[in-house]
Design a protein around this nucleic acid. Structure first.
Length: 877
RNA sequence: GCGGGCGUGGUGGAAUGGUAGACACACAGGACUUAAAAUCCUGAGAGGGUAUCCUCGUGCGGGUUCGAGUCCCGCCGCCCGCACCA
């Protein structure tokens, strides 16, 4: 080892140190979990990445957070499972194939190789021996087994659903490929098409998925709320309306409503354009057929449909009002009524539903209020531009008059249930869910083939498990749009496994959400020749801490919750919930820059200078003036991306890790700044210098006697407090606070160190060693390489990552004197120092004798004195 | 459109309903240096008094409370999701 004086002048060199420690961790298999029966298992997982080719700062942030949790839990004595893999199927590979004539497989695996290298340079404590990609034959083989298990368990169904159809490219488009109603490549107006597709019956689990949210108490409340709303349980009434003049085959229209109490205020019926009755009427009504065709040019996403201008078409058909004798309601077809929800038909009560009101105003339909707000007057209450949706009592409503909303719902339900129409009860109480079944069919090549065969005589036949996997053929062409599997005769044309007749293989592949709905389970036994090994999976699952983006708050997490239940039903697992703890992190943002022509400029090409506080930007090479724009999520299109590779190259992984953990609360967006990364770099150097200086001092002889040891006491207090605080913050994933605590501890040691150097008593040297070792252990989960280097410099032969978390001495955490703020009428006027065990009376006396308090009270007795122990005193004058 | 979230100094942010601005970045002044970088020290929410005192202050407008950044109601702005992007 070099001598200490020499080391003082040495800067920390991450380029040397980081690969050195990474090699040691890897050679020793430090993070590889082999124990089939682990003690104190702890499973930490970050959402696995799509292999786009390069990691971005969002990945760095996500995986750094997970790594801190993993390393902290290891230090706490847990056996930590921390795996990594690749969400490797999906559209970008096919797009690359079309654009660059590369095979999706080659493109994907090349991307994986370069991203793996990048991730490895970050020094994450990952068990790389468990790595897999969802496009690995071995993985999708097991997924096909699961599909067949689900099929046999009745969890899978086939039904029709709508897709975006590009009439020029003759292909199905994803929602993101539809831009302003047109196909992204062809520019053709998109049409809706009905296709028969495969569905997982997630809606069978709606109630279970909803109620189980209550038990997910380590999930963010916002995500639980979003999932509840997404499932959208509503209690309502299904009402039959009798068609007044029979111009149709149907005698009735069935309507679902959650507000049957407003039935007396109904002024129209609206059908979805996809409603069978609408279709029937359109056969003899060209204008209606035209209207429906217009609606079908809208795309299939709920967002597009609901944002579109509300339009309706009067069919001329009328229905009898169920409870107002002789009254009839017109039947419209309306573009905002969704066939997927309820019965695909609604009754409109404009006074008490905003959308209905706008529709009624547009088409001149009557607006009759039937719910009277608590303080309103029945004579003068009118509805103008705002529908009233609050509580109240029924009026203008015949036998319902005077009833509160809930009572009125019951009364109308009871009345209609008792009647029959067309041989059926006129109304049925029903619980309805917004959640729809999960359509998993994709008309694409680069996905997991759906393992079934269609036979004219035997129908749908699952591929026998012995014949799995159904492999993706290699020899495919991407010259023409559409699914190459569909054109691949060898893949498509097969014999029926049951009767041996000519049959057709399913050419749809699975939604990539299927791949990511069970990968966390596969990680527990990644090489098993069954999807999972139940005993092993049950030991590790549920994932103790799952970390990923808020953008997955609903779909991915809900699908995974469903999949885990489905796997349980098929005997693969014994747990229902996949993720015990969930944390959703924010995005990484950066300033945007534009040149004089309005073109985006990358941060790497911009030089910022700050004079007095005004920041100006110039182009690094041309010197052109650059305008500084808003802060946005890093994206290729706006060029405001920072390449983690360059950061690691310049500053090292620890600096990048430290930066993404600093400042911003992890659930919020973090802004990447050059100043910030330099600050992080300086801190890395500062820690190294501090530890080097401390090592030098610790090596000095300790024969000086110092009587007053207050400094050591203060140092140890700060040190133990930091350990307690940082541990709590790591456990709660409040990394920004851990960072601030580390700064404080570093500052405290920096102040203490010269005192020790001056008078190196045994007590002081001990306190110094304890504090510096604590510091190194505190930074170890965040900056693991630097921590190992410091740990070695302190003379340890062990790895800091194998060292247990320090024990907190509780006696250092209590104060014997506390400072209380004193307020008068809620405004701070001073403070008092009192013993921690002072009585409320003593505190009150001390507060009232403060000069500022005496002055403001002007001799008057206070009305009240509120003493909050260890917090505050408020004098009410 | 619907559902969810966020909004605090020049900047990122801290704050179980209890001293708003911890910690950091940037900035300014000083020390060291031939000089610079690095490092160290000091200062700072705004306005006034220029002392250690006063007023205002957490997107805007109300409310609850002894006390509100925090809870409630109504706005404004930004962000996420909306079922075939992953």
């Amino acid at each position: 080892m070099a001598n200490a004086t020499e080391r003082l002048n040495e800067r920390y060199n991450p380029r040397e140190q980081e690969p050195f420690w990474q090699r040691i961790w890897s050679d020793r298999g430090t993070f590889t979990v082999t124990d089939p029966d682990p003690k104190d298992p702890y499973y930490v997982l970050e959402m696995f990445p799509y292999p786009s080719g390069r990691i971005h700062m969002g990945h760095v942030r996500n995986y750094t957070m997970g790594d801190v949790v993993a390393r902290y839990q290891r230090a706490m004595g847990k056996t930590v499972l921390h795996p990594m893999g690749w969400d490797a199927f999906g559209m970008p590979a096919e797009n690359a194939a079309m654009a660059n004539k590369v095979h999706p497989r080659a493109w994907t695996y090349e991307n994986i190789a370069s991203m793996r290298k990048q991730l490895q340079s970050m020094g994450f404590s990952l068990d790389w021996s468990r790595e897999f990609a969802t496009c690995d034959e071995d993985y999708y083989h097991r997924q096909q087994e699961l599909f067949i298990d689900f099929l046999e368990a009745g969890l899978v169904t086939r039904k029709t659903s709508k897709v975006n159809w590009d009439p020029v490219d003759q292909t199905v488009l994803a929602n993101e490929q539809v831009i302003d109603g047109r196909g992204w490549r062809s520019g053709a107006l998109v049409e809706q098409r009905e296709l028969t597709q495969w569905f997982f019956k997630i809606s069978d689990f709606a109630e279970e998925l909803l109620t189980a949210i209550d038990g997910l108490d380590n999930w963010p409340e916002k995500v639980r709320l979003m999932q509840r709303n997404w499932i959208g349980r509503s209690e309502g009434l299904k009402i039959l309306f009798e068609i007044a003049e029979r111009k149709t085959g149907a005698k009735t229209v069935e309507v679902f409503t959650t507000r049957p109490d407003t039935l007396f205020g109904a002024s129209f019926i609206a059908l979805s354009p996809d409603h069978p009755l609408a279709g029937e009427l359109a056969k003899s009504d060209e204008a209606l057929a035209g209207f429906i065709a217009d609606c079908r040019r809208m795309g299939t996403s709920a967002e597009v449909i609901e944002k579109a201008e509300k339009k309706g078409f009067a069919t001329g058909l009328q229905v009898n009002h169920p409870v107002i004798d002789g009254a009839r309601l017109p039947v419209y077809v309306a573009n905002f009524v969704l066939m997927d929800y309820g019965t695909g038909a609604i009754f409109g009560c404009p006074a008490h539903d905003q959308r209905d009101l706008e529709f009624a105003n547009a088409y001149g339909l009557p607006v009759l209020p039937v719910v009277l707000p608590p303080d309103a007057d029945a004579e003068s209450f009118v509805i103008d531009k705002e529908a009233y949706t609050g509580p109240g009592t029924a009026f203008n409503s015949g036998f319902l008059d005077g009833l509160e909303v809930e009572a009125a719902k019951d009364a109308i339900a009871a009345r209609l249930e008792a009647r029959t129409i067309d041989g059926k009860p006129q109304a049925v109480r029903q619980i309805n869910y917004r959640l729809r079944d999960w359509g998993v069919s994709r008309q694409r090549y680069w996905g997991c083939p759906i393992p079934v065969i269609h036979c004219d005589t035997c129908g749908v036949v699952p591929v026998p498990k012995a014949d799995l996997p159904v492999r993706l053929p290699e020899d495919v062409e991407f010259d023409t749009p559409g699914n190459p599997l569909d054109r691949h005769a060898l893949f498509r044309d097969v014999e029926c496994p049951e009767c041996g007749a000519k049959a057709r293989r399913e050419t749809d592949t699975m939604d990539t959400f299927v791949d990511s709905s069970w990968y966390f389970a596969r990680f527990t036994a990644p090489k098993a020749d069954t999807p999972v090994i139940p005993e092993v999976a049950n030991k590790w699952l549920p994932v103790d801490q799952y970390i990923g983006g808020i953008e997955h708050a609903i779909l991915h997490l809900l699908y995974s919750r469903f999949f885990t239940r489905a796997m349980k039903q098929c005997g693969h697992l014994d747990v229902a919930e996949p993720f015990k703890g969930l944390f959703t992190q924010g995005m990484v943002t950066h300033e945007t820059y534009k040149d004089a022509n309005g073109a985006w400029v990358a941060p790497a090409d911009v030089v910022i200078s700050a004079e007095g506080g005004d920041r100006t930007a110039k182009h690094a090479t041309t010197g052109e003036v650059i305008s500084i724009g808003s802060i946005e999520k890093m994206s290729k299109s706006k060029k405001n991306v920072v390449d983690p590779d360059e950061m690691i190259e310049t500053y090292g992984a620890d600096t990048a890790r430290w930066f993404v953990l600093s400042d911003s609360p992890p659930e919020r967006d973090v802004q990447w700044t050059e100043a910030g990364i330099e600050g992080a770099w300086r801190f890395v150097q500062r820690v190294w210098k501090l530890v080097s200086d401390a090592v030098f001092v610790l090596e000095t002889p300790n024969d000086v006697l110092v009587a007053d040891d207050a400094a050591s006491q203060e140092m140890l207090k700060a040190s133990h407090r930091a350990v307690a605080q940082i541990g709590a913050d790591f456990a709660a994933l409040r990394f920004n606070r851990s960072v601030a605590q580390v700064y404080e501890l570093t500052n405290a040691i920096s102040r203490f160190l010269p005192q020790v150097a001056q008078e190196p008593s045994l007590t002081r040297l001990k306190a110094l060693r304890v504090s510096v070792e604590h510091l190194v252990q505190m930074i170890a989960p965040m900056m693991p390489h630097l921590a190992e280097s410091c740990w070695a410099a302190l003379g340890h032969k062990t790895l800091v990552c194998d060292t247990p978390w320090p024990k907190v001495d509780q006696s250092y955490l209590v104060d014997d004197v506390v400072v209380l703020a004193v307020q008068v009428n809620g405004k701070r006027r001073g403070e008092i120092s009192v013993p921690a065990d002072a009585s409320n009376g003593q505190i009150e006396n001390a507060a009232l004798s403060l000069d500022a308090v005496v002055r403001i009270l002007e001799g008057q007795a206070p009305k009240k004195v509120i003493v909050v122990p260890k917090r505050i005193v408020n004098v009410v004058a």
